[in-house]
C-alpha cells in the first residue's frame, strides 16, 4: 500500500518552515500577510475583551486609602496622593486649554472632541498606524479626523467596538493640500500662491513633507502649513500639518521653482493621547 504523500508530520514540518520564513519577512510583507487575520482575531475577540477591559479599568483604582497602614504612613500616602491629583489637575487644565484653543481656531461646530489614548503604534512602511482605545461604542467611525492639539495626526481607517485604527498623515502616496500661514505677523500678503500640495518623504526613519511652489511664493521658514484639502472632511481644515523648515531652489527646476520642506511639529509615533473629531449630529455646540 503506497504511503500517503501528505501526512500530519509533513504538514507540521511545512508549517514550521513557513513560520520560519514569515519570521524573517520584511516588515511591509509581514504586515500584508498578517493584517487580515489580525483584524479577524480582533473582531472575534472584541465582544469579550471590551467588557473585560472596562471592568479592569474601573476596578483598578488607586485612590482608596490603604486602611492597613499606620497613621504616619497614611499621612505620607495622602500627601503623595494630593501631589498626584495636583499633577493630574494641571494636566487636565492644560488639556482643557488645548481643546479650547482648537475649538476657537478650527471649524468643529457640530462635532465633539473626544480624547483617546494611543495603545499601540504600528510602523508599517506603507501605512503607519496608531491604535486608539476608543471605538464604535464611543462614536468613533471610519473617516473621522484625529489630531493632537492643533497638529493633524491622521484619519480613522478601521474601528471595532472598543478600539480604532488611525492611518497617519505621513503615509506615503497620500498627498495633502495645505495653506501656508505666517507663524508671526509680517507684511506678506496672503494669496492663492501660498497653497501647495505636500508629499510625505521618509528619510533616515523620519518623515517630512516636500512641496514645490513657484519661486516668488510668499513662504518662509517658520510658516505653518494648515490643511486645506477638499479630500478631507471640512472639520479637518485648519489643523496644522507641520512647520516649514527649509525653502530652497527646487533641484528639478532651480530657476523657477522652490522646494519647501515641512516637518511635523511632533513625532506622530510617540504621541500618547489624541483627540478624535466626532460628529454630534447637531448643527452647532
Amino acid at each position: 500500500m503506497p504511503r500517503p504523500v501528505f501526512t500530519e508530520r509533513r504538514a507540521l514540518t511545512l508549517t514550521i518552515v513557513a513560520l520560519a520564513i514569515a519570521t524573517f519577512l520584511p516588515t511591509e510583507s509581514a504586515h500584508w500577510l498578517a493584517d487580515p487575520p489580525r483584524d479577524l482575531v480582533n473582531v472575534v475577540a472584541a465582544p469579550l475583551t471590551t467588557p473585560l477591559k472596562t471592568v479592569g479599568d474601573s476596578v483598578r483604582r488607586t485612590d482608596d486609602l490603604p486602611v492597613e497602614l499606620g497613621d504616619e504612613e497614611q499621612l505620607k500616602w495622602a500627601k503623595r496622593e494630593i501631589e498626584r491629583l495636583r499633577q493630574q489637575l494641571g494636566e487636565a487644565d492644560k488639556q482643557i486649554a488645548d481643546l479650547m484653543r482648537v475649538r476657537q481656531r478650527v471649524r468643529t461646530a457640530g462635532h465633539a472632541l473626544r480624547r483617546a489614548t494611543v495603545t499601540a503604534w504600528s510602523p508599517k512602511p506603507a501605512a503607519p498606524t496608531l491604535t486608539l482605545n476608543r471605538g464604535s461604542n464611543d462614536g468613533v467611525a471610519k473617516g473621522q479626523v484625529v489630531a493632537s492639539g492643533f497638529d493633524l495626526v491622521g484619519r480613522v481607517v478601521d474601528t471595532s467596538a472598543g478600539d480604532s485604527t488611525v492611518q497617519l498623515i505621513t503615509t506615503p502616496t497620500t498627498p495633502l493640500s495645505v495653506e501656508f500661514v505666517a507663524a508671526k505677523l509680517d507684511a506678506r500678503p496672503a494669496g492663492a500662491q501660498s497653497r501647495c500640495t505636500l508629499e510625505p518623504v521618509t528619510s533616515g526613519g523620519e518623515t517630512v513633507f516636500h512641496g514645490r511652489v513657484v519661486r516668488d511664493a510668499p513662504i518662509r521658514v517658520g510658516d505653518l502649513a494648515h490643511l486645506a484639502d477638499p479630500a478631507w472632511p471640512a472639520e479637518a481644515a485648519g489643523f496644522v500639518v507641520g512647520q516649514v523648515t527649509s525653502v530652497d531652489p527646487d533641484p528639478a527646476d532651480p530657476t523657477l521653482r522652490r522646494l519647501i520642506v515641512v516637518t511635523p511639529n511632533q513625532s506622530l509615533t510617540t504621541i500618547d493621547e489624541v483627540i478624535v473629531v466626532v460628529p454630534t449630529g447637531e448643527g452647532a455646540e
Binding site: 513560520l19 520560519a20 520564513i21 514569515a22 519570521t23 524573517f24 519577512l25 516588515t27 509581514a30 504586515h31 500577510l33 498578517a34 493584517d35 487575520p37 489580525r38 494611543v118 495603545t119 499601540a120 503604534w121 504600528s122 510602523p123 508599517k124 491604535t131 510617540t270
Partner: peptide, 10 residues
C-alpha cells in the same frame, strides 16, 4: 515605547 510589531512566527 508601546510599539506593536506585527510579525507572525517568532
Amino acid at each position: 515605547q508601546g510599539l506593536d510589531v506585527l510579525i507572525v512566527g517568532p
